[in-house]
């Protein structure tokens, strides 16, 4: 487990200090689309320059290194408890060495634990896999964009959102309209639809792990994802909320079966600095 621990520390370093190539490319393409000399273009150029500087100097892209969220695919027989303890230890080391900003605050005492570990912190999800390899995906999710996420219960009359996929779309565009520039656009948007409130929230966030170019396996959802990107970009919120053509880089939708009475839609928002990475063990 010692080597695995060090592997997770390195995963933290990579995810905190470099942007996935698909996200960086998408920001560069966005900069070319914006009007020359506009606030939108200059904001995107600063973001791209910041990504380069962070990578070259091995410093975190954003001072908010967020809540670490782990998704593990674990071969049968490997102890989940031991993996959890290894992640906690790696988190303490990474906080000091990368460094990460200590973000875990005790709700009762208001004390910051100082090492990014605490009750339910970091967030870790386990899933068993029939494959023989352990896959560890990590996302560092900043607080600003986490705060602008929303959960909806269809129908929503004031949004003219019925209990169907068109209604889902209304919720997504509404969430971005309400977020404005507070969560650092251009955003990546994860959407989860289903029967249970807790389940859709997790499903929505999981969608943020998909590569931006990843096409939804369900054709109907793939089409809606594309339509929603254009609709969001028509809002004109723009990079940093300063106006412009690029408010979202991608929308990714995941669906579960729903209960006849329940139609929950969760919208999880990620900032332009969508930081994710994978360790295969």
């Amino acid at each position: 487990m010692l080597k695995l621990r060090d592997g997770i520390v390195e995963l933290y370093r990579k995810v905190a200090t470099s942007l996935p190539p698909d996200v960086e490319e998408s920001l560069k393409a966005a900069a070319l689309r914006e009007e020359q000399g506009s606030a939108a273009e200059s904001a995107l150029k600063v973001m791209i320059e910041n990504v380069r500087l962070a990578r070259d100097t091995v410093r975190p892209i954003c001072q908010d290194t967020g809540v670490p969220v782990f998704y593990l695919k674990v071969p049968a027989g490997l102890s989940h408890n031991e993996l959890r303890l290894t992640i906690d230890e790696a988190t303490r080391i990474a906080t000091e060495r990368v460094p990460l900003r200590p973000n875990a605050v005790d709700v009762l005492t208001e004390r910051n634990s100082g090492d990014n570990t605490g009750i339910g912190f970091p967030v870790v999800y386990f899933e068993e896999t029939s494959s023989g390899t352990l896959t560890i995906d990590l996302m560092l999710k900043g607080g600003g964009c986490e705060n602008v996420g929303q959960t909806y219960k269809l129908p929503v009359p004031e949004l003219n959102a019925p209990r169907d996929l068109a209604g889902v779309g209304r919720c997504v565009v509404d969430a971005v309209q309400k977020a404005q520039g507070k969560g650092c656009p251009p955003y990546v948007i994860g959407v989860g639809v289903g029967a249970a409130k807790d389940q859709v929230t997790r499903l929505a966030k999981e969608q943020l792990m998909r590569k931006l170019g990843d096409v939804n396996k369900t054709g109907e959802l793939a089409a809606i994802e594309q339509t929603l990107v254009s609709e969001i970009n028509r809002l004109g919120i723009g990079p940093q909320g300063l106006g412009g053509k690029t408010t979202a880089l991608a929308v990714k939708i995941g669906v579960n079966h729903r209960h006849p009475a329940s139609y929950f839609v969760d919208v999880s928002v990620s900032c332009w600095a969508t930081r994710r990475g994978r360790l295969i063990w």
Partner: peptide, 13 residues
Amino acid sequence: MHTIGGAAVYLAE
């Protein structure tokens, strides 16, 4: 004043 969110290294410089 609004400054660029997420540009943490650029601004730290």
